[in-house]
Amino acid sequence: MSKIIETHNISKVYKMGDNIVNALQSVSMSIDRGEYVAFMGPSGSGKSTLMNIVGCLDSPTDGTYMLNNQMVSEMTENELAQVRNKEIGFVFQTFNLLPRASALENVALPLIYAGYGKSERNEMAMAALESVSLADRWHHKPNELSGGQRQRVAIARALVNNPSIILADEPTGNLDSKTSYDIMWLFQELHDKGNTIIMVTHEDDIAHYAHRIIRLRDGLVEWDRKNDNVNRRPAEVAAAH
């Protein structure tokens, strides 16, 4: 399989007043296309920093980062914005939907920056909403949707541009257990369809939906192993769907 993400000795140092915090220390790793990876670790382990760098939301202080054969660690802010738009679909813990925009408009948002025309945008956004079973709620504003529905709108938005990777930051952090499982099963389906998914979580149970788990501690990779015990949707639930 081809490598979609490759980091080499990336570090991130924050200055907080007189203190220097080494959020990441020489982290090297690679992720193949189609993998489903979870970054795990306790609070302050560096998992969010790693996700921000992988998601091109932040740049490393040191080291190199290749995303889909592009050296993103040396890109300018506007180049990074283009990479985020084309290569990455984000799913956030707090959904991060625009409150005054409808579900359809929220999903279509990345397409605006990709330069699509309005009709094409709406068509693609509708298809993405259909893929998360929310086509009938396209006109609803976020405050008219449940937490799970909001997260599914966020997932549809992440998918709409057909990105290289889906990056989910604590995607179940704001959801109840049942809804959390619904979202995980949706991720399972996306992975089964060939999408590359990287998920950040501090919940062991949720991390086990991924096929590979990278555990971080104090800015270092503590371990990186294949998950032999993948949580899957029970057959009867799958059948009911």
């Binding site: 998601g55 939301l57 802010e77 506007n78 914005a81 283009q82 985020r84 738009n85 084309k86 984000f90 991060n96 939907l97 625009l98 948002l109 990345p110 920056y113 990709a114 938005r157």
Partner: peptide, 16 residues
């Protein structure tokens, strides 16, 4: 500010 963050994360440039 949050909307700006969302839009930037989704690929909006500084100019946009």
């Amino acid at each position: 500010i949050k909307e700006v963050g969302i839009r930037k994360a989704l690929g909006a440039s500084e100019r946009e």
